[in-house]
Amino acid sequence: MTWLEDYLSENGETASKTVKDAAVLAGIGRRTVERAAQRMHVLSVAAGFPRTTHWSLPGGIALGSNFEPITEPHHPIVVPENADVASDFTQGAEG
């Protein structure tokens, strides 16, 4: 496991500046961690004002976490048998 993978596994989505600063403190150059991020296909998302870039592992899940993805909805949607769901959508398009 690389330093970057380990860091993002433990911390999840993190501001790229924070990751790079932590890398420097660990004795790893900023450009080195940027190249590692490219090789690992780290997800980079810019948002907000002022614009901040956040890095996360592909799949958006911290590998070291206890996160378990939800495979089924917690609250299933129940539609009555006699409901005309299709007409609900077409009525909005006509008017």
Score class of each variant (00 low, 15 high):
Trp3Tyr: 12
Trp3Glu: 03
Glu5Lys: 04
Asp6Val: 03
Asp6Pro: 02
Ser9Ala: 11
Glu10Asn: 01
Asn11Leu: 03
Asn11Gln: 07
Gly12Cys: 02
Thr14Leu: 01
Ala15Cys: 04
Ala15Arg: 14
Lys17Gly: 02
Val19Leu: 03
Lys20Ile: 13
Ala23Trp: 06
Ala23Thr: 08
Val24Pro: 02
Val24Gln: 13
Leu25Thr: 12
Ala26Asn: 13
Gly27Met: 11
Ile28Met: 02
Ile28Asp: 06
Gly29Val: 07
Thr32Glu: 11
Thr32Asn: 13
Thr32Phe: 05
Arg35Ile: 05
Ala36Pro: 00
Ala37Gln: 00
Gln38Glu: 15
His41Leu: 11
Val42Arg: 05
Leu43Glu: 01
Ser44Pro: 03
Gly48His: 14
Pro50Ala: 00
Pro50Thr: 08
Arg51Thr: 10
Arg51Ser: 11
Thr52Asp: 06
Thr53Trp: 03
Trp55Asp: 12
Trp55Gly: 03
Leu57Ile: 02
Leu57Trp: 01
Gly59Leu: 11
Gly60Met: 10
Gly60Ser: 12
Ile61Phe: 06
Ala62Lys: 10
Leu63Phe: 03
Gly64Gln: 11
Gly64Asp: 09
Asn66Thr: 13
Phe67His: 15
Ile70Met: 09
Pro73Phe: 00
Pro73Ala: 00
His74Met: 10
His75Phe: 12
Val78Asp: 06
Val79Trp: 10
Val79Asn: 01
Pro80Val: 03
Asn82Tyr: 08
Asp84Ala: 05
Val85Leu: 15
Ala86Phe: 11
Ser87Asn: 10
Asp88Leu: 13
Asp88Trp: 15
Phe89Ala: 08
Thr90Leu: 04
Thr90Trp: 11
Ala93Trp: 12
Glu94Ser: 11
Glu94Leu: 13
Gly95Val: 15
